[in-house]
């Protein structure tokens, strides 16, 4: 009996000593097979590198985003200005990369803030007892019922024209993160953390009664240890997917704010303000609006495809 069982185990591939595949390496393998998601990831990585280089190395950025050349106004793509110039003679190539840098900062910065609020509220609601859960969930319901775009515009207006340090015009400022940028990040995050909080709460509630949590409890693990080393890692999959989809939403929100005139103050080149500026010259120089629009589309498409791929890769139900 024992011998035949061992043979069956050996045959089925579970030989002793064979390397076990964990969730993460399996997810990575599955992601690698998804060509669309892989391509999106590679394009994104190169966009990030390029956007960073364009701000540091003159050979890549070619011009300063606010440098004006009065002899070349509203040109199409030429050998010296690859994306053309705008109505003030500024190089669109340099401005689009500067805008991409801002969009990436806002997309990722927003998701960091959203993560912090979402995990705190979600975990607090799930683990903090019935009263806490009731209060926090009513609050998320309220935020959910608030018209999104109205709230973002209002929050942005509330935070504007402040001389606060770090998140205003006052000193000190974070390097690479001017106060106005952080204000936009905060305005967007305050409105978009609700989905993540609900997700984390749901995950935590379902995990609270999981057998391995019970096992850890019976072995005398502290609550902190159970929450941080057993429960949080297991909520990570859906959270990563939500964050990946949150980045393009934040990029859209920033572009939207910039477009309606509530974004970063000029002469900052954010992708939304670039589209808004280009709109006024659409009959004169279409390139001024085409390139920033395309940049927004590429960024959002890549994050969406990557999010789709991650969701498929991390979903335990599709595991073979």
């Amino acid at each position: 009996m024992a011998i035949s069982n061992e043979a069956a185990i050996l045959e089925s591939g579970f030989a002793p000593g064979r390397k076990q595949i964990g969730l993460w390496s399996m997810a990575f393998q599955r992601l690698r097979k998804n060509r669309l998601a892989l391509a999106a990831g590679i394009i994104l990585a190169s966009v990030v590198v390029f956007a960073a280089l364009a701000g540091l190395v003159d050979a890549v950025g070619r011009y300063s985003p606010s440098e004006q050349q009065y002899s070349e106004i509203l040109t199409g793509p030429t050998s010296s200005h690859w994306f053309g110039t705008d109505n003030l003679g500024r190089d669109t190539w340099a401005r689009v990369w500067a805008g991409t840098r801002i969009s990436l900062k806002i997309g990722i910065g927003t998701q960091l803030v959203v993560l912090a609020i979402g995990i705190a509220v979600g975990a607090g609601a799930a683990l903090g007892g019935k009263a806490t859960d009731g209060v926090l969930m009513r609050f998320t319901d309220l935020m959910y019922a608030f018209p999104d775009l109205l709230a973002i515009i209002l929050m942005r207006a509330v935070l504007s024209q402040r001389d606060w340090p770090i998140i205003g015009t006052g000193d000190p400022q974070l390097p690479g993160m001017p106060g106005a940028l952080l204000q936009v990040v905060l305005a967007i995050s305050f409105v978009s953390w609700v989905t993540l909080a609900r997700l984390v709460r749901g995950q935590m509630l379902s995990l609270r009664d999981a057998e391995y949590v019970l096992a850890a409890q019976s072995m005398g693990a502290s609550t902190r240890r159970i929450v941080f080393s057993h429960m949080l890692p297991n909520t990570l999959g859906p959270v990563i997917v939500a964050v990946t989809f949150g980045v393009p939403t934040a990029i859209f929100a920033e572009a939207f704010l910039g477009f309606i005139g509530f974004g970063l103050p000029p002469p900052t080149a954010s992708l939304g303000t670039l589209v808004a500026e280009g709109q006024g010259y659409v009959r004169v120089n279409q390139w001024m609006i085409i390139f920033p629009s395309a940049a927004i589309a590429v960024l959002m498409l890549c994050f969406t495809f990557l999010g789709d791929g991650l969701r498929d890769a991390l979903d335990p139900r599709t595991r073979r």
């Binding site: 393009p248 859209f252 572009a255 939207f256 477009f259 589209v275 280009g278 709109q279 659409v282 609006i289 085409i290 629009s293 927004i296 589309a297 959002m300 498409l301 994050f303 969406t304 495809f305």
Partner: peptide, 11 residues
């Protein structure tokens, strides 16, 4: 789903 509506409007 990935292209913002004002970018679509532009094109």
């Amino acid at each position: 789903a990935a292209v913002p509506n004002f970018v679509l409007s532009v094109f």
